[in-house]
Design a binder for these strands. Sequence first.
DNA 1: ACAAGTACTTACCCTAAAGTATGTATCAAT
DNA 2: ATTGATACATACTTTAGGGTAAGTACTTGT
Lengths: 117, 117
Amino acid sequence: MTAIKESSTRNENKEMSISACPVSYVMNKIGGHWKPVILYQLMSGPKRYSELRKAIPTITEKMLIQHLKQLQTDDLVIRTAEPVVPPFVTYKLSKVGESLTPVLNAIANWGYAQTGR
Amino acid sequence: MTAIKESSTRNENKEMSISACPVSYVMNKIGGHWKPVILYQLMSGPKRYSELRKAIPTITEKMLIQHLKQLQTDDLVIRTAEPVVPPFVTYKLSKVGESLTPVLNAIANWGYAQTGR
DNA sequence: ACAAGTACTTACCCTAAAGTATGTATCAAT
DNA sequence: ATTGATACATACTTTAGGGTAAGTACTTGT
């Protein structure tokens, strides 16, 4: 997952605006193209890794686990692995993740309104 | 503003998920780090270019006008220029831009809740 | 013996997004 | 004549994000 350069100006600018602006803070947590999409899928209940892949066909496996990992470390989703084989892994929203529901719904509703349902 | 390569796989994947998922559609319109921040600033009323710069100190001028232009072509903000010198240019939310208010408020509120106000 | 299913991991490469730095036009005031 | 203010523009470079392709581990079914 290739570490980020802490010292880059890019990162500094982000850090600064995060502490100053709530919107900026949120965009860092759930910004990017895929994270909100994944979270939106998990809003309808826990899903297995393979289910998520099917639900979001255009995402690559790399992106999917990469973001799932990030969402875990950000305490937005919880991973549960059954010690069986073949593996059975489910992902679900954490409490904090669930608190994003209004945000994701607001986003989705606006999207529907713009694209004409 | 360097044209994008329409044929890139990256773009294709985006296009596909945009049409399939409302969240993905929205992230393309107001995704990225700066666009929501700019829109959030404009929620409190029209602002001059220089006022926006002061309100978002960490953004570079390049990013600011680049995104302002994009937001214009996406019909989210309206630019008004008085034919005077020195220039007097104001930006404000369009009708569609104003319809983003619930989305941006939901985002900001969540941000406040997470960071502890 | 080996193919299939599941959930990853890793190495390599490419590109869009962002930053840096500098330049432009116009007029008023000093 | 030079400075200042305002709202940009443009060339160049860096970097984070994303894509491609291939491999791993473990067991059940054939």
